[in-house]
Design a protein around this nucleic acid. Structure first.
Lengths: 355, 355
DNA sequence: AACGCATGCTAACTCGGTTTAGCACGGTCG
DNA sequence: CGACCGTGCTAAACCGAGTTAGCATGCGTT
């Protein structure tokens, strides 16, 4: 049972060569270093026959690289996002022969330090620092020692910025506004922030950027936000309350942009109570593509987060940084923004009283 | 920036001793091997001052252990369960100084082999083989080479069984039945399997065990299942259809055990349409504690899966196996069943017409 | 003076690979 | 005949720790 692993020395012995020779052959540098065809063939055959697999730990000790990345996140379990982010990262890593260490900080900086140390102790080739909701964060010291990428978080250190991958919230804001304009809507309300660009919940990048995108497009079309509703939190109850206010103010032919789907749930509830129908009376477009968005009747039209894509790109960019440090290729830098996919369902209707 | 790590040799040099001496001191075997107090003190001070951390890769090469475990799952992202299982495992591992490699097989045996190989190449000390829904599975060859534990899955190889951690489905079945009996119910229906023990969806351990537990308790109380509804799948539509059949058959004072919460959603819907109220007309108890179970009105009383506990225990047992292989302690074996926590909400009422 | 013994440390090897420098051999050329 | 060169390989060092065997030194005995 507990059979010993086949080592390079085993292969070399059985092939009648020295272990450096076997190493050269198996790393493809055989011809370059003038190992005879015959010897190369023998080594290859023996290696295949014995099922030789190089010990990555040992190789890592010599080469400094371990074919291993660290993925440190504030949360791994509480949201669908977390799982998909990890899934994307896992797949991208596996495609390139890398394995991923996963760590969870629970937002605790001390724990984060411990995890980063534990990763460095294990000679990881690079580290992804992920956050489950897009936010600004400081970058812990000591990360300079190893390639690193920020995922779904924006770094605050502007002198030593890390490459960063985030969803393109501003673009999604623009598209949400354009979607409503194109459907003929002119009476547009915003729930979650606004009506002016400075009225956003503190610390949320998503809120700021979504609002900025919305306002930009509306301004360009000469349309003003009818009302904006800054909320403490983005929960159904807040959406409900804001929608009640909108309805109480009267109007008609309204469209609402909710800043996340839970706000939209509350809006649906308030509209239903008021005897109004989505979308014929009120159109709604939202953000996040919550699993429940598809359960609502009518289905909620919403901009989803490109979860797996984010995870994938983080790994891809990280590996580019790794290669750049090794001297091959250009080091990526700056912020990469990934488009948020629109899930068109049934909550937006063409406005009937087009002026 | 790219500062070199502090090595044992650095510490030794600065402390004016040889590296073996430093190694002995730092591994706590200094006194045992008669290193003078003075020398020990100097080494400790220098190590602390330089912030020395041993390179685990190197240590692993020598000692064969890497303070690293592998967690291979068929899925990491599609369910809450997956995330929580991982979270529990992560925490337990971190508490003991271990890091976790995560891998996702997507149910593909070839991919599973690749991942296991990749883990073995990295000298992991042990491997957790997890499944996201409890089921039987064959254990891949080659796992004998390294300690391993099955998580939320039952192995099919009975000659070389792996230690296993699963939720205690049969116990939950018993408790569900007892819950209804204690509330005075005698007209009990089962949706998802039954009415007899052999009528379960193929391959689902959960179905078989839940049903067995239910039938055992009912039989002991001299109560027969009024009707059982074996379904192809456990989806809302199936729950809806089965509930319609129950209502069409007439009766009154019914109680329903649904085999998962999605079946219960369908049951709620059918009851609502029929103008019946939960729980005053029909009581429902279910399994899984789906995130939506708390959103239903009334809240669904359901047995949850002990997600994090499962992950934790898997790591703990795995590390016991590791220690046992190293010669310390007893090797655990057999199947450990973790109790499923009951979430009491509002879907079960005391039966008014108690005979 | 020779021996034994405890003390305090280190040389040398090990793990499994990679890398560099260079040896041995045969043939060619001046 | 010796210098030179290309061929085909290997010895030896290296990565950073852990481990074992044993060497000095000083002290007390016989």
């Amino acid at each position: 049972m507990k059979q010993r692993r086949v080592t390079l020395a085993d292969v070399a012995r059985r092939a009648g060569v020295s272990s450096p020779t076997a190493s050269l052959v198996l790393s493809g540098r055989g011809s370059e270093l003038r190992i005879s065809e015959a010897a190369q063939q023998r080594v290859q055959e023996v290696a295949a026959h014995l099922g030789y697999r190089p010990n990555i730990v040992s190789r890592g000790l010599r080469k400094g690289s371990s074919l291993t990345l660290g993925f440190v996140s504030d949360t791994v379990a509480t949201s669908q996002l977390a799982g998909d982010l990890i899934k994307g990262a896992l797949e991208a890593a596996h495609d390139r022969g890398f394995m991923l260490f996963i760590g969870e900080t629970e937002g605790d900086p001390a724990l984060e330090r411990q995890l980063l140390d534990a990763l460095l102790d294990r000679q990881v080739d690079g580290i992804i620092l992920a956050s489950m909701f897009t936010r600004s964060r400081s970058v812990p010291a000591g990360l300079g020692a190893v390639p690193a990428v920020l995922l779904n978080a924006l770094g605050e250190d502007l002198d030593a910025p890390l490459p960063t991958v985030v969803p393109d919230e501003m673009d999604a804001g623009r598209r949400a506004a354009r979607l409503l304009l194109d459907a003929g809507h002119r009476r547009i309300h915003v729930i979650g922030a606004g009506p002016t660009a400075d009225l956003v919940p503190p610390g949320t990048v998503a809120g700021r950027d979504r609002l900025a995108g919305i306002l930009e497009v509306l301004a360009a079309a000469g349309v003003q936000v009818v009302s904006g509703h800054l909320c403490d939190e983005w929960l159904p109850a807040n959406g409900y309350a804001a929608t009640r206010r909108i309805l109480d103010a009267g109007g008609g032919q309204d469209a609402i942009i909710t800043f996340n789907d839970r706000l939209a749930f509350g809006a649906y509830q308030a509209l239903q109570e008021a005897g109004l129908a989505v979308p014929s009376d009120v159109s709604i477009v939202s953000f996040d593509d919550h699993p429940l968005a598809d359960w609502l009747r009518p289905g909620l039209t919403t901009f989803g987060l490109p979860h797996e894509q984010l995870g994938r790109r983080a790994v891809e960019i990280l590996l580019e940084v790794v290669r750049a440090r090794a001297g091959t290729g250009e080091a990526p830098s700056g912020v990469e923004r990934l488009p948020m996919p629109l899930r068109t369902r049934g909550s937006v209707a063409t406005c009937s009283t087009r002026p």
